[in-house]
Structures are given as structure tokens and as C-alpha cells.
Computed example of a mutant assay.
Amino acid sequence: MTTADPSRVFVPPRWFVRLAWRVHRRIYAGSGGRRGLRRAGPGREGYLCLVSTGRRSGQQRRVLLAYLEDGPDLVTLAMNGWSEGEPAWWLNLLANQDAVVELVDGTRRVRAHAATGAERERLWARWRELDEKLDDYAARRPGGTAVVVLAPRAPSDT
């Protein structure tokens, strides 16, 4: 494992990252969900739409996230564009772990949790396979980056 060096990586300015995700969401919404999502595959992440409940508003909130598959689970990183603070979608899931994900092939009810211990290390290593500079990006954040597991919920789970 290499020592993380945040100066080794370029991260676009915050305004640009926010603009890029806003455009991505508009493409998704404007196409009625037909564009903007991608299935994860060998050597590449996919894109999903997470629908969670706002922790303060109680309203549905949508965000597009990169993910990888781990068996039946979907795994993403709460990285906030590699900036400070936790992303709002992760704070929403901490308040209410039940959500829905929209995928290329349909929707799935999920329950979120932060991976810890050996599970986190294994999943972080999988993300590192997709981006060799992952540790450098993560070192830019003052706190840790949660590895978020979106596990399928049973139909009886409400």
C-alpha cells in the first residue's frame, strides 16, 4: 500500500464538481430515467439513482452515485466530491437507512450501512482496483470516507 499524498491528484474546483453532477441529474430526469445510469461491470463503476428521505424535510431526495456490485449488495463511497463534510445523501441515510435505488434494469429497495473492519478494507480495495489514486483522493478529506453498503431489503421489511 502506498502512502496517500493528496498533492498527487487533481480535483476540479467544487463549483465544477457540483455543476457536473447537476448536469448528470438533469440528463437523467429529462430523459425520464432512460439516460444517465450505467450497469457496473468488470473494471468499471456503474451509476445508480438513490432515492432517500430527507432527514429534515421528510421529502424524497434523489442523487446519482457511482457504485460497484458486491454479490447482491451495491457499494458506494460517501466522498462528497472529495471535499470536507459528509454528503447530504449519506446524512439522510444515517437518519433513515431505508431507501430505493433506481438501476438500469429496475428499482430495488435497500437498507444502508457503513462497512467497518474487514468488510470495509475488502470493499475499499475493490474501489482501489478501479482507481489507483483512491487513497490520495481520500487523504484530501479531513475525516474518513464511509464505504456505504446498500443491501437488498426483504419484501416484508418496511
Rank of each mutant, 00 (worst) to 15 (best):
M1C: 09
T3S: 10
T3G: 11
T3I: 15
A4H: 00
A4W: 01
A4F: 01
D5A: 06
P6S: 00
S7Y: 04
S7A: 12
R8A: 15
V9I: 10
V11T: 11
V11G: 02
R14S: 09
R14F: 07
W15H: 10
V17F: 06
R18Q: 15
R18Y: 06
L19H: 09
L19R: 11
A20W: 00
W21Y: 10
H24T: 00
H24C: 01
R25I: 00
R26N: 06
Y28P: 02
G30Q: 06
S31W: 02
G32C: 00
G32T: 00
G33Y: 05
G36E: 09
L37E: 09
R38L: 13
R38Y: 00
R39K: 10
R39F: 08
R39C: 09
R39L: 12
A40P: 01
P42N: 01
R44W: 04
E45R: 01
G46M: 06
G46T: 08
Y47A: 13
L50S: 10
V51K: 05
S52E: 14
G54V: 08
R56W: 05
S57T: 05
Q59C: 06
Q59A: 12
Q60G: 10
Q60L: 12
R61T: 10
L64S: 00
L64R: 00
L64V: 06
L64Y: 00
A66N: 12
L68W: 01
L68D: 05
E69G: 14
D70V: 02
D70G: 03
P72A: 13
D73G: 12
D73Y: 09
L74T: 06
V75T: 02
T76K: 03
T76D: 08
L77K: 02
A78N: 07
G81M: 06
S83Y: 13
S83I: 11
E84G: 09
G85M: 15
G85W: 13
P87A: 03
P87Y: 04
W89L: 04
W90P: 04
N92G: 08
L94Y: 14
A95C: 10
Q97S: 15
D98R: 14
D98S: 14
A99Q: 11
V100C: 12
V101N: 01
V101K: 04
E102D: 15
D105Q: 07
D105C: 06
T107A: 12
R108M: 12
R109L: 02
V110Y: 01
A112W: 03
T116G: 05
T116Y: 01
T116L: 05
G117H: 07
A118L: 15
E119C: 13
E119D: 15
R120T: 10
E121Y: 09
E121T: 15
R122M: 13
R122H: 13
W127S: 03
D131M: 07
E132C: 02
E132T: 01
E132S: 05
K133H: 07
L134Y: 07
D135S: 08
D135L: 07
Y137S: 15
Y137P: 15
A138T: 14
A139D: 14
A139Y: 14
R140C: 12
R140N: 11
R141E: 03
R141Y: 07
G143L: 10
G144H: 10
A146P: 08
A146C: 04
V148G: 00
L150F: 04
A151E: 06
P152Y: 04
R153I: 05
R153Q: 11
A154H: 12
S156P: 07
T158L: 05
